[in-house]
Each structure stands twice: as structure tokens, then as C-alpha cells.
Design a binder for these strands. Structure first.
Ligand SMILES: [Mn+2]
Ligand SMILES: [Mn+2]
Ligand SMILES: [Mn+2]
Ligand SMILES: [Mn+2]
Lengths: 225, 225
DNA sequence: TTGGAGATTTTGACTAATCAAAATATAATA
DNA sequence: TATTATATTTTGATTAGTCAAAATCTCCAA
């Protein structure tokens, strides 16, 4: 049951590829290879080995899918990753734009004992600095649907809850626009032709591409009675 | 200049083997292999590779020694290891008897940026929880001679400053005897025939083997004027 | 000075992870 | 349906790290 960093990274990448897909769908090998920064042939070889150890189910020319055992492991890697990220921000005072890369390494090095202490110290948090849900110790992960700035209603106050991109440059852009998780904003216009979305923040109005807008998940503000 | 965890562990082990030796001496392959938990042939192969990359100088049938470049790297690994240990004790509230194994992994995963923050958060500490000196950011490491409970004067108050064994069981024993770094104690008797040393603590008198006694380094208490 | 005894090195083999490039399968297009 | 484009798998090779066991070296003692 001792997974190498490489195996953990594969499982995590498959999990994340899967979570963007419909239930029971397979993650294509090309996408997996790209996500891991390896050549397609490498992914094929590794995935066949993972299938051999019962962590994934693999269908040639179709793709790969986590088994129950594989998903259990993947979720625990994700838990470690996200708890570490939040710890680095809250306790170590690091910037939320730079903790992802650090966590990418630490997620393979922290013991269960340490992760338990981090979890307790942070008060068993629900989400990480990017709004990604933190699986609990039993492996249960909050999974609820969100709108994005691309799909939410117009001229309605919404709260940014999650950013689906860990690229530091993108995150810095989001920070500059005051669009980090927790901020209340309002989509004023969407221009299909220009492929753009305009968002009003308390400070100003920002216009961004649809691709960027789709990476910002939001929740409709619930009006108190 | 990117050393793998394995290379870092080899350099660290050579450094530690070296520090028990006279200047310019070589660490024998057998000792190195034992310290790393590998078979002698493996150590030979690896050391030849390290020599190839200029990190060590290797003399067949004699042993291995760090070059300046190798020592620089080794010291940085040691710095990370010890800062992490102290962090785990001071900030995370872990027991000093259990942080070594955790640090053994984390030392390869923490970035310079993070280690810098840890160092600052701890106030640029001089020693880790076991009394081992922490090299500073430039790689300078405090190296001064100590007595041990085996060599210090009898019936004289001394302060335990360092424990030269990371084994949790041994550390727990030290803790139980109230002989952790910082404690003031006094060696009452040494029995060469019985190979034992008796130490008086504020609470009681403990008798231990010479081997154990030699692992507890002490400093003579400086009498204030 | 001649055996060992014990330490060290060699040799051959193995696993994990990777790439380049050729071969093949699938999907899309004409 | 035949052809082309794209995705995937195979094949052959490489690097890091390791072990088992045979070969070799060093050094001490008889
Ligand atoms: Mn990772
Ligand atoms: Mn995150
Ligand atoms: Mn280590
Ligand atoms: Mn220590």
C-alpha cells in the first residue's frame, strides 16, 4: 500500500481528469500524459502497471478510470495537498498564488500523523486557499455544483468560491482584479462575438476572456430572510 | 545542481560519518552502507557516481570523503533537516522523540523559500531539539567540542547539550530519565568493570551503560562571576 | 611470508520511470 | 467507402537505484 510519488501523481491526475467528466467515463491517455508532462507512451506503460496493481481500470484506446482502491488513494493525496496549501497560507504566511508548487512536493512527504495535526490546527477546514474542497479524514469529499462567471445569471451579486487554475500568473491576475474566493461580484455583460465577460467588483469592472471566466466558480448569494 | 533524495541522503551520511573522524580521513564504505541501510556493493556504485559528479572524492579500498561542493550540499540538507525538526516540535507540538523520521522525508521536499520562512519564524535558531547545531543560511556550522557523560569530570554539575542518537526508543528513555538537552546533571560514579555510568538528576540517580553515556554530550556549567 | 578473515569491489540481474520513434488503431473527411 | 488525420500503443533504449553472490583486495597473525 506504499505508493511512490509518481504513482500518487498519476492517481491524482486521473482523479482530476475524471472529475471533469461524466460518471463512469474514461480519462483519455493523451490528456493524462499532458497533465503529467510525460510522453503518451509513458502514460500507457504506467497505467498498465497501475491496472496490474488494481488501482485503475484501463481500456486500450479508450482511457483509464480509478477503481475504488485507486480513488481512495487519490483522495488522500488531494487531502494532503490541500491541507498543506492552506497551512502554508494560514500558518506560514505564504502567498496563495505560490503554495501550489510547494504542496506538489510536500503532499508526498507529510506523514498521516503530521497531516492530522495540520488538520486539527486549522480547525478541520472545508476548503483550501483556491476554494478546492478538502476531503475529510475518512475520504469524503464535498461535491456540489457551482456556476462559473460564464454561466451565472447576469446583473446578480454572486460570490467567488473557487479558482480552477493553479498557475501563479493567472492567480496573480485574479488577485489584482480582486476576484479571489470570498469576493462578491456581478457579471454585467457577456459578449459572445468578442468571447468576453465583464465583471463588476466593488472597485472597478474587469473584462476577461470566456476561458478565464469559466475558471472562476461562483455561488449565488443567498438572501437572508 | 538538483540532487535526488538518494544523493542527498548519501551526502548527509558521508558528512556525518566524516564528522566523527579526524580531518581528511575517509569514511569506510562498509560504515556508509550500514548507515544508509544498503548493501556494500550498492554504496560503492553510488559513491563512484558521486565522485563522477564531483561531490565526493573516492579512494578504492580506503573510503570516501566530501569535496567542497559535496559538503556544501550536505550541510544544506542538514540545515533543512534540523530546522524542520525544530519546527515540528515548536510550532506543530510534536514530540522531540518522533520528529527525526518525519524530517528524514521532509528534508528533501521543503523549498528554499519555505525553509527561509521556517528559519525566520523560529528566530534563526542555533540548535535543533536534539541539540544538533543548525547550519546558517550561508552554510556555516557551529563546531565546538563537548564532553560526554563518559568523559566529563565527576561530581560536577554539567548541562546536557546534545543527544547523538535519533532512535525514538533511546530518546524516550532519555526523556524518562530527565536527561534531555538543557537539563543540569552530575556524574556521580563510573564503573569501568561494569561498563556503567551513574548520573544524578534533580529527581533521582540513573545508571546506564557506557555506550549510552557516550551519546549524551554535556557542557560544563560556567560559574557566573 | 603465507594464510586466512574480513572488507571491498565486480558482475549480472532486476525494478521503476522515462523518451524517441515506429507501428497501429480509431475517427473524421472526402 | 476509401483516405487522411489524430490518438494510442509498441518497441527498443536509457537512467537511477538496488541486491545477490562471486571475485578480489588488505591486513593481521601464525
Ligand atoms: Mn505531486
Ligand atoms: Mn489548491
Ligand atoms: Mn532523508
Ligand atoms: Mn536532530
Amino acid at each position: 500500500m506504499l505508493a511512490s510519488p509518481t504513482v500518487e501523481n498519476y492517481l491524482k491526475a486521473i482523479y482530476q481528469g475524471q472529475s471533469a467528466l461524466a460518471d463512469g467515463q474514461h480519462v483519455p491517455m493523451g490528456q493524462l500524459a499532458a497533465a503529467l508532462g510525460v510522453v503518451p507512451g509513458t502514460a500507457t506503460t504506467m497505467v498498465k502497471a497501475l491496472a496490474e496493481s488494481g488501482l485503475v481500470s484501463y481500456e486500450p484506446y479508450v482511457g483509464v478510470r480509478l477503481t475504488v482502491a485507486g480513488e481512495k488513494l487519490a483522495v488522500m493525496v488531494l487531502r494532503r495537498h490541500r491541507l498543506v496549501e492552506l497551512f502554508l497560507v494560514q500558518v506560514m504566511g505564504m502567498n496563495w498564488t505560490e503554495v501550489h508548487d510547494e504542496a506538489e512536493h510536500l503532499e508526498h512527504a507529510v506523514s498521516d500523523r503530521l497531516i492530522q495535526r495540520i488538520d486539527a490546527m486549522l480547525g478541520h477546514p472545508q476548503v483550501d486557499p483556491h476554494g478546492d474542497p478538502i476531503p475529510d479524514a475518512s475520504g469524503t469529499v464535498d461535491r456540489h455544483e457551482y456556476h462559473s462567471l460564464l454561466t451565472c445569471p447576469l446583473n446578480t451579486r454572486v460570490t467567488v468560491t473557487r479558482v480552477l487554475d493553479q498557475n501563479p500568473t493567472f492567480l496573480k491576475f485574479i488577485e489584482d482584479c480582486a476576484l479571489m474566493p470570498g469576493r462578491a461580484v456581478e457579471v454585467t455583460t457577456r459578449d459572445t462575438a468578442a468571447d468576453s465577460v465583464s465583471v463588476k467588483t466593488p472597485d472597478r469592472t474587469v473584462t476577461m476572456g470566456a476561458r478565464a471566466a469559466s475558471k472562476l466558480l461562483v455561488q449565488l448569494e443567498t438572501n437572508p430572510i
